[in-house]
C-alpha cells in the first residue's frame, strides 16, 4: 500500500522524454499556479508538507494522467479549502462564470512589504533545520533497517526501501519531521541520515542492471540491523 506519488521502482512506465529548450513554464496558468502557491505558502496558510500531502491524496489514475502543475492546482485547492479561506463551491462557481466570460480580467492587489519578505526568503532560504538536544541514534557505518510499517498519510520514506537493510553513510542535521508537520501536529524535528542500500538488497536477484541507492531518512524511520 502506498499513495500515488510513491512510485520509485514501479514497472510499466515508458521512456523518459526530454524537451529541447524547455521553457520554465509552459503556459500563463502554470506561472500563476506556481506564484500563487509560493505566495500563499509565504502567508502561512499551509506548510510545505501539507502541500506535498495534498498532491499525494490524488488517486493514482488521475495522478498519472495529470500534468505536474495540474497536480499543484489540486493540492492548492485542497489546502486553501482546509485553511478556510475559500470553499469548493466558490471555486466551482467562479470557474463556471469565467468559462462563460473568458475575457474577464483577474483583479489585482499589491502588498509591497509582503512581496519584499517573500523575495527575501526565496533568495535567503528558509531551512527546515532545527535545534535538537537529543543525541544522534546512529553513526556512520551503522547497519540499519528502514521501517516496514505501512503509512497511509504523508511520509517521506519511499516504499521501495521499506523493510530493507542499508548502511549509514552521512550524518545530517535535525530537520522538521514531515509526517508530524503535515498532520498539523507540530515540527517535532529528528536527526536525518543518508543511508546507502545495495541494489540486490532492494531489488533482489534481478537487480543486475541496478545500482546502489542513497536515501535520506529521518531517525524514527530506522532501527539498528
Amino acid at each position: 500500500m502506498a499513495r500515488a506519488h510513491d512510485i520509485g521502482g514501479l514497472k510499466g512506465l515508458g521512456r523518459v522524454e526530454m524537451e529541447q529548450d524547455e521553457p520554465v513554464f509552459h503556459s500563463e496558468w502554470e506561472r500563476r499556479v506556481f506564484g500563487i502557491t509560493m505566495a500563499t505558502l509565504g502567508k502561512g496558510l499551509f506548510n510545505i508538507e501539507q502541500f506535498r500531502s495534498g498532491v499525494e491524496e490524488i488517486p493514482i489514475v488521475p495522478y498519472l494522467e495529470s500534468s505536474y502543475y495540474e497536480r499543484w492546482i489540486a493540492t492548492l485547492e485542497r489546502n486553501l479549502i482546509r485553511a478556510g479561506v475559500v470553499s469548493e463551491d466558490e471555486i466551482d462557481a467562479r470557474t463556471t462564470e469565467l468559462s462563460h466570460r473568458p475575457e474577464t480580467e483577474v483583479g489585482r492587489r499589491e502588498e509591497p512589504e509582503f512581496c519584499e519578505m517573500l523575495l527575501g526568503a526565496i533568495h535567503g532560504g528558509m531551512s527546515p533545520e532545527r535545534e535538537l538536544d537529543a543525541p544522534k541514534g546512529f553513526e556512520i557505518g551503522d547497519r540499519v533497517v528502514a521501517s516496514g510499517t505501512e503509512v497511509l498519510t504523508h511520509t517521506r520514506l519511499p516504499r521501495y526501501v521499506r523493510g530493507k537493510t542499508g548502511v549509514v553513510v552521512r550524518l545530517d542535521k535535525a530537520f522538521v519531521f514531515p509526517e508530524s508537520n503535515a498532520a498539523g501536529d507540530g515540527e517535532n524535528p529528528e536527526w536525518c541520515y543518508c543511508v546507502r542500500f545495495e541494489a540486490e538488497d532492494v531489488w533482489g536477484p534481478n537487480a543486475e542492471n541496478a545500482a546502489p541507492v542513497y536515501v535520506d531518512v529521518w531517525e524514527s524511520y530506522l532501527v539498528a540491523a
Partner: peptide, 10 residues
C-alpha cells in the same frame, strides 16, 4: 486548468 487557476486567483 487555466479557468480553475484564474478562479482561485480572482
Amino acid at each position: 486548468p487555466s479557468l480553475r487557476t484564474r478562479a482561485i486567483e480572482s
